[in-house]
């Protein structure tokens, strides 16, 4: 009877301790990455290679999604705004919602599922096939050689991808608003320019995407490094990367929005 009562409590305690332990581990992991960054940034071509795989290969999906999101914003925004007789404000609506929220958040979600999961799978598989151990044996630090270049590649790529997403989204909104619906092109741009502020909107959006870049890449490399070195373990770690990244992106976005705007 007592066992029946105690076992859920024990499980709760175990989960809590495990969560705190992982939080501490991920913090120490981040510190280790920062400590060995100097070494890995000296060999910058490693990072450039990772920027190619994480950033350049994500351009197509980010650009196409940005275009569609902008076009949807154009259509929905026009429908709603014209009901209130202010369809002229469409440019401002599209630009503000993209720069402040949709651009950084959606680009980060796409990045985590396109590049983050690949990073986790790659590092996890390196661990499963004992490549990381082999590096340690050869006195090559796996964090400096494998983890840190991927981390910095993600941090560098994320704001660039978010900026591309924003520009494509605004172009999509322009296509719908001006080319298809036939709003005045001058009004579209001038409304946008009157209502968008460089520091308040553009720079804050870029800061957001930088924070997301740090969060998503850290989760991706951590899950890979921490994966159980089996086929099932790597697959579970990849799933965890996508799920955790999505939740963390949205939570961090809420906190940043509350502070910024």
């Amino acid at each position: 009877m007592t066992e029946l009562l105690l076992s859920p409590l024990r499980r709760l305690g175990h989960t809590t301790i495990n969560a705190i332990w992982r939080l501490g581990f991920i913090t120490r992991f981040l510190l280790a990455i920062l400590r060995y960054s100097g070494q890995s940034l000296l060999r910058f071509n490693l990072t450039i290679r990772e920027i190619y795989f994480a950033g350049v290969m994500s351009v197509i999906i980010v650009v196409v999604s940005g275009l569609f999101v902008g076009m949807v914003l154009g259509l929905q925004g026009y429908n709603t705004l014209s009901r209130f007789g202010s369809a002229d404000a469409l440019g401002a609506l599209v630009a503000l919602s993209l720069l402040r929220e949709l651009g950084p958040v959606l680009a980060a979600l796409l990045f985590s599922s396109r590049a983050g999961s690949a990073m986790t799978a790659e590092i996890g598989l390196m661990k499963a096939t004992e490549q990381l151990d082999a590096m340690s044996v050869m006195a090559v630090n796996p964090i400096a050689r494998v983890v840190a270049p991927r981390f910095w590649a993600g941090v560098i790529s994320m704001p660039i991808l978010a900026a591309m997403f924003n520009v494509m989204g605004i172009f999509g909104g322009y296509l719908i608003g001006v080319v298809m619906i036939g709003l005045d092109s001058g009004t579209f741009w001038s409304q946008m320019q009157n209502n968008v502020d460089l520091h308040y909107d553009v720079v804050n959006g870029l800061i957001k995407s930088l924070c997301f870049g740090i969060a998503v890449t850290l989760i991706a490399v951590f899950e890979g490094y921490d994966a159980t070195p089996t086929a099932a373990g790597v697959s579970a770690a990849t799933t965890r990367t996508v799920v955790t990244s999505a939740l963390v992106i949205l939570a961090v976005d809420f906190v940043l929005t509350a502070f910024m705007f």
């Binding site: 071509n45 450039i48 290679r49 920027i51 190619y52 950033g55 350049v56 351009v59 630009a95 720069l99 790529s157 704001p159 660039i160 991808l161 900026a163 591309m164 924003n166 520009v167 605004i170 741009w189 946008m192 320019q193 009157n194 968008v196 502020d197 460089l198 909107d201 553009v202 870029l206």
Partner: peptide, 25 residues
């Protein structure tokens, strides 16, 4: 790889410049 990454970064900078000049005026 260098060429593609260079193109990627250049496009990113172009996007930021576009947002600063054309969108934020």
């Amino acid at each position: 790889i260098d060429l593609w990454v260079g193109l990627f970064v250049a496009l990113g900078i172009a996007a930021v410049v576009f947002m600063s000049l054309k969108v934020a005026n």
